[in-house]
C-alpha cells in the first residue's frame, strides 16, 4: 500500500514536470531546419499503435510508455552537442538528438522512489511493452541494465559503465556495430539532414532503428508510375497484377471509368490519373 502511494506521488510529480504533452510523433511538425515535412517520418513503417488509453496517467497512475517499435522523433530545436570521437581523425558533424518522451523520462521520476529489480524476468507494467528483439538481447544474453543507467537522471551506459545521455545513443550502438558506425561517421550510413554544403548534421541511430527491435519493418509503398495521361497501365503491369480479375485495371477500363478527383479536379483512377485531355483539357490550357 505504501509502495502504491509512493508510486502515484512519483507519477504526479512527473506529470507536473513534463511540460508538453507526450509527443505523438504521427502529428508532430517540428521545425526541421529543412523543408521536408517530418510528420511522415515518425518511423520507417506504419508501426502498430498500442492502445494506451487503459493505462494513461490518470486512470492507473502509471507513466505513458513509448509505443512499441516506434522510432524517436528528431528534435531539430535541440542545441548542437559535441560528438563523441568514435574514430581517430573522424570528420566533425552534429548529431540531432531525439525528442524526449516526457512520460518515461527521466527514469528518476519513478526510480528515485522505486527500486529497480535487476533480475532478468518477464517485464510488467509499465515496462511490459519493451520486448527486446535485438540480436543477442532477444536471446536473453543482455538485459535492460546492459545499456540503461538508473542512477542520477538516468540514461544510458556503455559496456564499460561510462554514463551516456540518451542523445548519445550512437556511442552505445557503435560498441558492437563498428562497421555501421564507421559508415555512419563518414557518411555512408545514416541520414544527413542538413544541406550538402552546410555543416553536416546527421540523425541519431534511434531515429531510424527502434532500439529494442532495430530491424526495420515493412510498409505499404507509395503508388507506382503510370504510363501517361490518356492511357492506362501497360499490359505488362496488368499481367503481373495478382489481384482478382474483376479488380484489375485494364487499359479499356481506364478509358471508361474516370472519376474526377475532388482535390485536383483531374480525373483519376484508384491509382490516380486522368483519362483524356480532350474532354477535360480546359483547366490545363493556358
Amino acid at each position: 500500500m505504501l509502495l502504491l502511494i509512493v508510486l502515484l506521488a512519483g507519477c504526479w510529480s512527473a506529470a507536473g514536470a513534463a511540460g508538453p504533452p507526450p509527443a505523438t510523433s504521427g502529428t508532430s511538425t517540428a521545425a526541421t531546419g529543412s523543408d521536408w515535412d517530418w510528420s511522415g517520418f515518425s518511423g520507417l513503417d506504419d508501426a502498430p499503435v498500442t492502445d494506451r488509453s487503459g493505462r494513461g496517467g490518470k486512470s492507473t497512475g502509471l507513466p505513458v510508455a513509448p509505443k512499441i517499435g516506434e522510432t524517436a522523433v528528431p528534435d531539430f530545436d535541440a542545441p548542437a552537442r559535441k560528438t563523441y570521437a568514435l574514430f581517430r581523425g573522424m570528420p566533425s558533424f552534429d548529431v540531432i538528438p531525439s525528442q524526449r518522451d516526457p512520460g518515461m523520462h527521466p527514469c528518476s521520476n519513478c526510480h528515485q522512489w522505486v527500486l529497480s529489480d535487476p533480475r532478468p524476468r518477464k517485464l510488467k507494467q509499465p515496462h511490459d511493452n519493451f520486448e527486446l528483439q535485438h540480436g543477442l538481447h532477444g536471446k536473453g544474453k543482455f538485459w535492460c541494465f546492459t545499456c540503461h543507467e538508473l542512477s542520477g537522471k538516468g540514461g544510458l551506459k556503455t559496456l564499460e559503465g561510462e554514463k551516456l545521455e540518451f542523445a548519445d545513443a550512437y556511442v552505445l550502438c557503435s560498441q558492437c556495430h563498428v562497421d555501421q558506425a564507421r559508415d555512419w561517421v563518414y557518411g555512408a550510413h545514416g541520414k544527413r539532414v542538413s544541406g550538402w554544403q552546410d555543416k553536416r548534421q546527421v540523425l541519431n541511430c534511434t531515429a531510424c532503428h527502434y532500439q529494442h527491435r532495430p530491424a526495420l519493418k515493412t510498409r505499404t509503398p507509395e503508388p507506382g508510375p503510370r504510363v501517361r495521361m490518356g492511357l492506362g497501365r501497360p499490359p505488362h503491369w496488368v499481367e503481373k497484377d495478382k489481384r482478382p480479375e474483376a479488380d484489375r485495371v485494364t487499359r479499356a477500363a481506364w478509358k471508361t471509368e474516370a472519376v474526377p478527383d475532388e482535390k485536383t479536379g483531374l480525373e483519376t483512377r484508384p491509382e490516380g490519373r486522368r483519362d483524356s485531355l480532350v474532354e477535360n483539357g480546359d483547366d490545363e490550357k493556358s
Binding site: 504510363v227 501517361r228 492511357l231 485531355l277
Partner: peptide, 12 residues
C-alpha cells in the same frame, strides 16, 4: 491543340 497526347506514343 491537344498535343501528342492524342497519339498512342508514350515515354516508353
Amino acid at each position: 491543340r491537344e498535343g501528342l497526347v492524342v497519339t498512342n506514343m508514350t515515354n516508353q
